[in-house]
Design a binder for these strands. Structure first.
Length: 422
RNA sequence: GGAGAGUUGGCAGAGUGGUAAUGCACCGGACUCGAAAUCCGGCGAACCGAUUAACAUCGGCGCGCAGGUUCAAAUCCUGUACUCUCCUCCA
């Protein structure tokens, strides 16, 4: 959520920067007009309330002195009606202002590339070289099905498309991967969390999924519960409506959780394999920090995610998302994309974002500065990493011509010494 | 799922219709070489608005949340969330 006062005071700058994210200037105009209307109504109602408070005091006095105050009471009855009318209108306007403001995305950091879509993203670093195969590399779903470790057919039977079973060494590989990730993050100072997987609407609002992106998630019917689309939601809402003791900052959290996404609007894309599922495991990183350190923290987080890929021996590159490709709450996002041989391209496996105070303002997450003044923290989140996609990358990058898959060195301890899936 | 109790400032804790006691903590001052103790004064979150360059001042709001009754609600009514205890159920 952007600060309305800030928008008011920096109208043209806000318009220009949000325009790079596809927000029309008229929307801002509408918002500010409604806000002006709101403030006018506030003045009106508060003036009347003040009057009522004063007269009520007189009435109380009169009663104490056993005098009548019928005339005042009658007058205040009138005033009460007026207040009621004005405040009904005020409430309407307030809801409108709130709703519009809640649908504005974060201001992009001025240094990121400006452009309408992903073609404007900029590669900032490339690590590892894609392996030259002496044979035609197979897609991971073929490898997995042949080895009997991924079962998409039964996933479809039991649940539907975009669901699967991991079987035997497949399940073990998945578990090895996320245990490895959690251990690595713990070494970097992240506290391991096991969060709830169902959250209420206030939490979804806090991180920015609601109100705008309700169609992307699974909600429980007739209950205020939503299956988390990412552990970012429970991790970032952990401190919702709280003041974090300053000495605790920065806070580093990591968690493994399933992520549930409806994938509405992605029909026909990545219909096979582990790339796009309704349920997938992800190890998430979340940070809360002081505003002045958030960009350093973003760099560190991106490195933390990258280190996992490096240790797994998977080639990847880091890109900075353009204004048009960035998520709603982010001010700056670095994506890590891993090499997928069968597609001969890099695919997103992590997304690390600095949301600055955008989520903190929505979720009321604060700290006290040196002067004791309350201030919003900055929040960051990043995948470290998407587990299913990591498994896909391992299967493809470590496949052998005979259909077996070599287990990356660092995972062998987690696989009870298994070094080859056959 | 059933029954009961609770939710008030950073903490503790009064207040059952007249506009939030008190204590601790905190801030300032006095005393002191300094500190403690003591005394005096101040301060009760956050939020919104008006005026302001800002500090500040004034006002609104504010007793878990949302409604209602009333000239006036922490207090009465309705709904609801959460916490605790007991029962039931269950892993």
């Amino acid at each position: 959520m952007l600060d309305i006062k800030m928008i008011r005071q920096n109208e043209s700058d806000v318009k220009a920067r949000l325009a790079t994210r596809g927000v029309k200037a008229e929307l801002i105009d509408q918002l500010l007009a409604a806000d002006q209307q709101r403030r006018d109504l506030v003045v009106k109602s508060e003036t009347l309330r003040q009057q009522r408070n004063e007269v009520s005091e007189q009435i109380a006095q009169a009663k104490r002195n056993k005098k009548t105050a019928d005339e005042e009471i009658a007058r205040m009855k009138q005033v009460g009606q007026q207040i009621k009318q004005i405040e009904e209108k005020l409430k309407e306007v307030q809801v409108k202002v709130q709703d519009w403001a809640a649908r504005l995305p974060n201001l992009p950091n001025p240094t990121i590339p400006v452009g309408p879509d992903e073609s404007y993203n900029v590669e900032i670093k490339k690590i590892g070289t894609p392996k030259e195969f002496t044979f035609k590399p197979k897609p991971h779903w073929e490898i997995g099905e042949k080895l009997g470790i991924l079962d998409f057919e039964r996933g479809a039977k039991v649940s539907g498309s975009r669901f699967l079973y991991y079987v035997g060494l497949g399940a073990k590989l998945e578990r090895a991967v996320y245990n490895f990730m959690l251990d690595e993050h713990e070494k970097e100072g992240y506290t391991e969390i096991l969060p709830p997987y169902l959250v209420n609407a206030a939490s979804m609002y806090g991180t920015g999924q609601f109100p705008k992106f309700k169609e992307d998630v699974f909600q429980i019917q007739d209950q205020d519960l939503t299956l988390i689309p990412t552990a970012e939601v429970p991790l970032t809402n952990y401190y919702r409506d709280e003041v974090i003791p300053t000495e605790k900052l920065p806070v580093y959290f990591t968690a493994l959780s399933p992520s549930f996404r409806s994938e509405a609007g992605s029909a026909g894309r990545d219909t096979r394999g582990l790339i796009r599922l309704h349920q997938f495991n992800k190890v998430e990183m979340v940070k809360y920090c002081r505003p002045e350190t958030s960009y350093d923290e973003l760099e560190k987080m991106t490195i933390n995610a990258g280190n996992i890929l490096e240790k797994l021996g998977l080639p990847y590159h880091i890109i900075t998302l353009s204004t048009g490709d960035m998520g709603f709450s982010a001010a700056m996002t670095h994506d890590l994309e891993v090499w997928i041989p069968a597609q001969n391209t890099y695919r997103e496996i992590s997304s690390c974002s600095n949301c600055e105070d955008f989520q903190a303002r929505r979720a009321h997450i604060q700290y006290r500065d040196e002067k004791g003044k309350l201030n919003f923290v900055h929040t960051l989140n990043g995948s470290g990493l998407a587990v299913g996609r990591t498994v896909a990358a391992i299967l493809e990058n470590y496949q052998n011509e005979d259909g077996t898959v070599t287990v990356p060195e660092v995972l062998r301890p987690y696989m009870h010494g298994v070094d080859l899936i056959e």
